[in-house]
C-alpha cells in the first residue's frame, strides 16, 4: 500500500524573470516501510516536493496524500503522522537540546511528563547527554543535525521526511547520520529522503527517484539506476596535451563508450565494464606509447553521470535556478 502518493504535483512561483516551475508534474509512490530517495541537484525541486508533502506549501496543481490523508485539505492530521528534519537544522538556538525536544513534544500535545521522558530518551539515543543542558547555539553542526533529527522523532512518526540530512556535514558526522537513519529504517519507519549525493541514496534508499526540472526523470533501485548510468569509468589526466590523441585512442580501445575530454583536453574519461582490467590495459598501452600521466584511476558513478546519461546535460548547469532564490521571490 502506498503511504506517500503524489500525482501531477505542480508548484509555480512567480519570479522577476517570469513564472518558475519548481515542480512540474511530479509523480511519486512510496510503499509503506520503504526508504524512498529523491536524488537531484540544487534547484531540481526536491525541497519544494518535501515542502508540499509536509504541508508547508500548497501545490499550484496536482494532489498528494500522506498516510492516506490529503496534504492540503487534511494538513493538520497529516502533521500528526509525520516527522520532518530539514536541510537547515530547525532548532531554537537559545534553548538547550533538552528544551528544544521537550518543546516539540509539548507542541505535539504529548503532555508534560511524556514530553520530558521522550526528550531524555532521545538525548540518550543520540548521545547528546553531556551537552543536553547547553544552549544549542554552542553545538557543532553535527550535533545540531542530531537534535533536529531527534525533534522529528519525538512522536515516533510512521513517516519521516529528511531533506538533505547530511548536506554540509563533515565525513565523520555524515557516517554517523547514516547509521542513525539505517536504524530507523530497520524499525519499519517509512522514510522519504532527498539528497544530492548518489552514494547517500545508494547507502540508504530502497528506491530512488531522480528529479530534474520539477519532475521524476528516472526511477528504480540503486542497481537499476547504476546499470543505466553504465557503472564505473576510467578517468586520466596527461601531462602533455600533445599526447591527447594517443590517450583518447587507448581509452576508446578499452572503454565501453565514447571517451569524453575536459576543456583543456588533458583530462579525459570513458565508461568501462570491468574497471580494474580496463585500467590495467589502458595503462599498459599508455606506457608503451610513452604517454606521461599526472593522474589515473577508476571513478565511481556520480550524480553528474546520472544527469549526463539521463538528460544529456551536466548537473551543475541546473544550479543556476537555486530553490533558495525562488523562495525569496514569493
Amino acid at each position: 500500500m502506498a503511504i506517500i502518493e503524489a500525482r501531477g504535483l505542480t508548484k509555480i512561483y512567480s519570479a522577476k524573470t517570469g513564472p518558475v516551475h519548481a515542480l512540474d508534474g511530479l509523480d511519486l509512490t512510496v510503499p509503506k516501510g520503504t526508504v524512498q530517495g529523491l536524488l537531484g541537484p540544487n534547484g531540481a525541486g526536491k525541497t519544494t516536493a518535501v515542502k508540499v508533502l509536509t504541508t508547508l506549501i500548497k501545490p499550484t496543481d496536482g494532489e498528494a496524500s500522506v498516510a492516506g490523508l490529503d496534504v492540503v485539505r487534511e494538513a493538520k492530521a497529516v502533521r500528526r503522522s509525520i516527522g520532518v528534519s530539514g536541510q537547515y537544522a530547525a532548532v531554537d538556538e537559545n534553548l538547550t537540546g533538552f528544551e528544544n525536544l521537550d518543546m516539540v513534544g509539548r507542541l505535539y500535545h504529548l503532555g508534560k511528563k511524556e514530553s520530558r521522558r521522550r526528550a531524555t530518551e532521545l538525548i540518550e539515543m543520540f548521545e547528546l547527554t553531556a551537552a543536553q543542558n547547553r544552549p544549542v547555539k554552542g553545538f557543532s553542526g553535527g550535533m545540531r543535525r542530531r537534535i533536529d533529527l531527534a525533534g522529528a522523532l519525538v512522536t515516533r512518526p510512521e513517516i519521516l521526511f529528511l531533506d538533505e540530512p547530511t548536506t554540509g556535514l563533515d565525513p565523520r558526522s555524515r557516517l554517523g547520520m547514516w547509521d542513525v537513519i539505517k536504524n530507523l529504517v530497520s524499525d519499519g519507519t517509512t522514510v522519504l529522503l532527498t539528497t544530492q549525493y548518489l552514494e547517500e541514496a545508494d547507502q540508504l534508499a530502497d528506491n530512488i527517484a531522480v528529479i530534474d526540472g520539477g519532475k521524476v526523470i528516472a526511477e528504480g533501485t540503486s542497481d537499476e539506476l547504476k546499470a543505466r548510468i553504465g557503472g564505473h569509468r576510467i578517468e586520466l589526466t596527461i601531462i602533455d596535451a600533445a599526447d591527447a590523441g594517443a590517450a583518447r585512442e587507448a581509452l576508446a580501445r578499452h572503454g565501453a563508450g565514447e571517451p569524453r575530454s575536459s576543456g583543456d583536453r588533458r583530462t579525459m574519461e570513458v565508461p568501462v565494464e570491468e574497471g580494474a582490467i580496463a585500467l590495467q590495459r589502458v595503462l599498459t598501452d599508455l606506457s608503451e606509447a610513452g604517454v606521461q600521466l599526472h593522474d589515473a584511476g577508476i571513478r565511481r558513478p556520480t550524480l553528474d553521470d546520472v544527469f549526463l546519461k539521463l538528460t544529456g546535460r551536466i548537473a551543475e548547469e541546473d544550479e543556476a535556478t537555486n530553490e533558495a532564490e525562488l523562495e525569496k521571490t514569493t
Partner: peptide, 14 residues
C-alpha cells in the same frame, strides 16, 4: 539502538 519502538499517539493526553 532502537529509535522507533512503537507508533506514537500524539494528542492522546491533550
Amino acid at each position: 539502538m532502537s529509535v522507533v519502538t512503537e507508533q506514537g499517539t500524539p494528542g492522546s493526553s491533550s
